[in-house]
Amino acid sequence: MSQFTVSGEFQTRDGMQAFTRSLDAVNENVAREHVLSKFGAEHNLNRTQIEIGEVVAE
């Protein structure tokens, strides 16, 4: 597995909040799905409220 850094923004009551997450994943698509799933669970967000800016392999 590779290390990926995913960055982007998610919607809050006050506007958009930036985030950066590092995680291990098989490929870039799996890293994106993991971040969408995790933010949805932690912040009670829909996928449309999360914007992924970039995914970088380290």
Rank of each mutant, 00 (worst) to 15 (best):
M1R: 11
S2Q: 13
Q3A: 11
Q3V: 15
Q3R: 12
Q3H: 09
Q3E: 13
Q3C: 06
Q3N: 11
F4R: 03
F4N: 03
T5Y: 00
T5N: 04
T5V: 14
V6K: 01
V6N: 01
S7I: 03
S7H: 02
S7L: 02
G8K: 04
G8I: 08
G8Q: 04
E9W: 05
F10P: 02
Q11N: 05
Q11H: 06
Q11L: 15
T12D: 05
T12W: 02
T12E: 10
R13D: 14
R13S: 15
D14V: 11
D14E: 15
G15S: 07
G15H: 05
M16S: 06
M16H: 01
M16V: 09
M16P: 00
Q17M: 12
Q17V: 02
A18F: 01
A18V: 06
A18M: 03
A18D: 09
F19D: 03
T20C: 06
T20W: 00
T20E: 13
R21M: 13
R21F: 07
S22M: 10
S22V: 12
S22F: 00
S22R: 12
S22G: 08
L23M: 14
L23R: 06
L23T: 12
L23F: 07
L23Q: 08
D24E: 12
A25G: 09
V26F: 02
V26K: 12
N27K: 07
E28L: 10
E28W: 03
E28T: 15
N29I: 05
N29T: 08
N29A: 08
V30T: 12
V30N: 08
A31R: 05
A31T: 11
R32W: 02
R32P: 01
E33D: 15
V35N: 00
V35Y: 01
V35T: 05
V35E: 00
L36G: 04
L36W: 01
S37I: 04
S37Y: 06
K38Y: 04
F39E: 05
F39C: 03
F39H: 03
G40K: 09
A41C: 03
A41Q: 14
A41W: 05
E42W: 07
E42F: 08
E42G: 02
E42Y: 05
E42R: 11
H43E: 12
H43V: 05
N44G: 09
L45D: 03
N46H: 08
R47G: 05
R47S: 13
R47M: 03
R47L: 01
R47A: 13
T48V: 10
T48E: 12
T48R: 09
I50P: 02
I50L: 04
E51A: 14
G53T: 12
E54R: 15
V55Q: 01
V56I: 15
A57E: 14
A57I: 15
E58H: 11
E58P: 02
